[in-house]
Amino acid sequence: MTDTAQAPATGPLARLSDQFWRRPRLLLVLLLALPLLWLGLIYIGSLAALLAQSFFSIDEFSGLINREVTLRTYGELLRPANFDIILRTVLMAAAVTIAAAIIAFPIAYYAARHARGRMKAAFYLAVMLPLWSSYLVKVYAWKLILAKEGILTWAVEGLGASTILNAILALPVIGGNSLSVSYIGTFLVFLYVWLPFMILPLQASLERVPGNLLEASDDLGATPGQTFRHVILPLAMPGLIAGSIFTFSLTLGDYIIPQIVGNSSRFIGMAVYQHQGTAGNIPLAAAFAVVPIVIMGLYLWMARRRGAFDAL
């Protein structure tokens, strides 16, 4: 019955690929089904369950969860002890993000605009290498580096700069007995661990800035500083925002680093960990967990309003 000239489909695979070509939507559905199921059901679903939990409350005498919708648990967050945790975590995350951006920018700029060939490969290796080793190993290594008997104190003494280190440690609030039991120590470790997550998106966005835009700015009379402010920074903003989402949210949610390095004051992650574990206060843990989500939402909304994504 077929008298056409084209070759007939041979084998089931060929027939399947013909079918996909004729009905491209079928292929799309098949490709997206699994990830959508994962994202929709497991991820969004558990997020919704978390959100729901935060509107329950705990009976303080029996320790049982009262499944009536209430804002009482959120009210708990405003108690000084809990609010301090939130404030401390947000300040730390902000400090880590700003410091990471400042340190990452020149590195990313060099990698995007100047490094070629082997230097570029070396850059990627240097940025990614720390990610290959265990997070815990890195944090404990830092604890040793920052300890009172550690290599940093030793090196500072060797350089005869002990007075400077002692002056820093004597600072109120952020100082301490040694770097490993101070906020400065916690900050340094956060900064080290999350820095690659700032460098890589920043480098990607700087790489996409055409070189002739910098020449055009130069040609139109801009000083290097003006070119940075009016051309490079706005065009790198999407990368900077992406990087800051990483460093900010990773710091907001981390509960291990402040346990190992620092003065054992609590951060949001630790509070969530303790409330859902030993304390058994799931609603409060959920309410704490919602805080970073709200903060990130506010942050992105503000960034968008300020035009950070205009260059996208």
Binding site: N212, L213, A311
Partner: peptide
């Protein structure tokens, strides 16, 4: 050559 207009 390719104008180099600032996209933002």
């Amino acid at each position: 050559q390719d104008y180099a207009l600032f996209p933002h």
